[in-house]
């Protein structure tokens, strides 16, 4: 995730202090990984250098955390461009799982067992996410759903691979 663009986007609704920005980020997006103060200030000084934000005021007491930042016109254009640019879909072509399955077959290990164990591990994570979703608010539900759909896609691949193990075994033996 682009922290710079996210902080810029948060500034669009009005100027904020560094600590206020960190709090807003953590509340909305930082469920698993809250920002460090250091990250906020290094990002803000980069945005400042690039003219995307400006210092709107400094509270008495000094120190970087007392600066209040405002987004510039260039900053707004930058956020707009970022939002309008689609993210590149991940292709996952170099899957570690695929490598493990092929290696298991090449070395005459139990590839079906490997796939079963992986499914179980995926389901364990899916249970934790489902539980968090059940207890959480709408933001939690959407974040967990995104992760759950990706894990589900992995699982579908595991099932399909399990069903094709005999063919794959023949192919890797060639």
């Amino acid at each position: 995730m682009s922290i710079g663009h996210t902080l810029l986007g948060l500034l669009e609704s009005g100027p904020r202090h560094g600590y206020d920005l960190k709090r807003a980020f953590d509340e909305k997006f930082g469920h698993d990984r809250p920002l460090h103060y250091g990250q906020v200030y290094s990002t803000m000084s980069r945005l400042l250098k690039n003219g995307l934000v400006e210092v709107d005021g400094i509270e008495a007491g000094g120190g970087p955390e007392r600066k209040r930042y405002a987004i510039t016109e260039a900053g707004i254009t930058d956020v707009e461009r970022w939002l309008a640019t689609p993210e590149r879909p991940e292709l996952y072509l170099q899957s570690t799982l695929y490598t493990k399955v092929v290696l298991a077959l090449l070395t005459h290990r139990d590839a079906a067992d490997l796939l079963d164990t992986q499914r179980s591990e995926h389901l364990r994570t899916m249970r934790a996410l489902t539980d968090r979703k059940r207890k959480g608010d709408l933001a939690d539900q959407l974040i967990c759903d995104h992760a759950l759909f990706h894990l589900e896609a992995d699982l579908r691949w595991l099932e399909l691979t399990a069903a094709r193990l005999d063919k794959l075994r023949e192919a890797v033996a060639r």
Partner: peptide, 26 residues
């Protein structure tokens, strides 16, 4: 469906009529 199975406490996998209790297997 994995998303439905995620509401369970544990799973048993059946393949070719044989079952495998994943919790006891790990």
């Amino acid at each position: 469906e994995a998303r439905v199975a995620a509401y369970s406490d544990r799973e048993i996998v059946v393949r070719d009529g044989k079952s495998r209790d994943m919790e006891r297997a790990v």
